[in-house]
Amino acid sequence: MHSPQNGSAARRIIHVDMDAFFASVEQRDNPELKGQPVAVGRSRARGVVAAASYEARPFGVRSAMPSITALRKCPDLIFVPPRFDVYRSVSGQIRDIFARHTELIEPLSLDEAYLDVTAACTGDVTATAIAMDIRAAILEETGLTASAGVSYNKFLAKLASDQDKPDGLTVITPRRGAAFVASLPVGRFNGVGPVTEEKMRRLGITTGADLRAQPLAFLAEHFGSSAERLYDISRGIDDRPVNPNRERKSVGAECTFLEDLRDPAEAKAALGPIADKVALRCREKGVAGRTVTLKVKYADFEQITRRRTLSSAIEEADDMCEVAGELLQGLVPLKKGVRLLGVSLSGFDAPEPESEDQPDLFDF
């Protein structure tokens, strides 16, 4: 368990998150799409939504959603094929803007990154002013809007960037950190997915304040190795540095089925949408890998993995699906029902580009 950073050592972290990045690029380049519900992706039966415009989101359309589901939710949804070469080019422009202020840039994908601007905050220059300059430069040079969060650690900066989307800026100072976390639903916390959120709900934990009220021993009993991090973030504590050389180890996706799969052909067909999601994430992050891993969880929760390393890197869904299908074939006949299937890609050729009432000892 960590202790909060004191004021003199506190970092100034900015998290920049582009607003509906892929869809916004398409609306920028095609004025006829402005104001329309737009999904970047393929409308075919096995397609997946790569991004949804803000006009599509009130209908429940989200990224990584099957296209057929998105169309059912929003019949007027306009599908636009993805142009990842364009998105990468714009992302490069944005990265150049970041580099005017700091070398400590940790990209998470084409459309978001952490920046440590501590060294740049001298004299009258504050992290908030830097974030404002970055957002203004992005708008002027790309025609796109970005939301930013400013805080003293990565966890809070990311929460802050999502607080006032789109085109927002939120600042969380050390004095506000713990109280801000306490007010939020736990589903907002990075790393708390739907399964963990539901488990917390069953335990009576629905807000950051509820989480903070639990002793470490209780969290260890119910959440295992995640207990220490949950204990810390419920108090606004996160000591992770911004790492400009972070190497992504794998990209994956999985699906838990409402009914166990027993037909090998049905199980193989289910790999298609999963591989589509992995391919989408690979394109977003600009990576290709040589090792495909298949994860199978049976109805009795027995879990096994099978992997194959190829001679050259791949990033396309069809290639991943073919290899995963061959790995699945090695498990036929299925000895029991399949509850979950997962596909991941790894072996990448290149890396992806305090006390509770801390005083505000520096300007944000």
Rank of each mutant, 00 (worst) to 15 (best):
R229G: 08
A220M: 02
P66E: 07
A119M: 02
V332T: 13
P75F: 05
D318L: 07
S3M: 14
A9S: 07
L156Q: 14
P244T: 06
G92E: 01
G236K: 02
A23T: 07
K335S: 15
P333N: 15
T128R: 08
R229D: 07
C255D: 15
L258S: 14
P37F: 07
G347H: 01
D116N: 06
S250T: 10
H2T: 05
T305Q: 14
V242F: 06
A56F: 01
A220T: 13
V181K: 00
Y54I: 00
G149L: 07
D167Q: 14
T207K: 05
V48G: 01
K295A: 02
D29L: 12
I134E: 07
R175L: 15
E322S: 11
L211F: 04
A23F: 01
R339A: 15
K158M: 01
A51Y: 02
Y152P: 07
F84W: 15
R202I: 00
D260G: 03
A127I: 08
V343Y: 02
E141D: 09
F155V: 05
R11E: 06
S24A: 03
T102V: 02
P31G: 04
A99T: 10
S109Q: 00
L331G: 09
S225R: 15
I68H: 08
T256I: 10
A64D: 14
L211P: 02
K73S: 15
F180K: 10
S67G: 05
H15T: 10
E198G: 03
G143C: 07
L156F: 15
A127E: 03
L280R: 03
G337N: 15
E315W: 05
R28E: 07
G92V: 06
L261M: 00
T207I: 09
S3A: 13
A213M: 11
R42Q: 01
V16Q: 05
E316C: 01
A10S: 13
Q163A: 14
